[in-house]
């Protein structure tokens, strides 16, 4: 069953997840569970939108890295969108921005995923 604590929608075969305000252990694990559930259903394209996220702590970073690894293992695709500056800086620092395209909006991310770029 898909975790009810995370807002998500499916557009074609793309899952768009809306991350919560604070990505800590609980929220991070909720995100991970939803991704696991979709991966188990053979859905491999994800957009994670952080426009509602103000803070991501080290646990959240660790979980996000884990999610990326799992999606990559399945040869899937993941894009991030809507990052506020503070979180963009953290993703740059961690090196996530080198591996995962960071798009300004969810729509841009979905369109890019659809176009297969």
């Amino acid at each position: 069953m898909i975790n009810q604590h995370i807002n998500y929608k499916e557009i074609d075969n793309i899952v768009v997840l809306h991350a919560e305000n604070y990505i800590n252990k609980m929220e991070g694990e909720n995100l991970e569970k939803v991704c696991d559930a979709f991966l188990a259903k053979r859905t491999y394209k994800f957009v994670i939108d952080f426009s509602g996220t103000d803070i991501i702590n080290s646990i959240g970073i660790s979980i996000l890295i884990g999610i990326i690894e799992k999606i990559k293992e399945k040869k899937g695709l993941v894009l991030f969108s809507g990052l506020k500056k503070v979180n963009h800086d953290i993703f740059d620092m961690v090196g996530l921005s080198k591996h995962i395209p960071l798009l300004k909006t969810e729509e841009e991310a979905v369109n890019r995923m659809k176009s297969g770029q």
């Binding site: 646990i59 970073i61 890295i65």
Partner: peptide, 14 residues
């Protein structure tokens, strides 16, 4: 578990 995640998150380890 949280402590391990914090260490990993601090060093961007998977």
């Amino acid at each position: 578990k949280s402590a391990l995640y914090m260490v990993m998150g601090s060093f961007f380890a998977s």
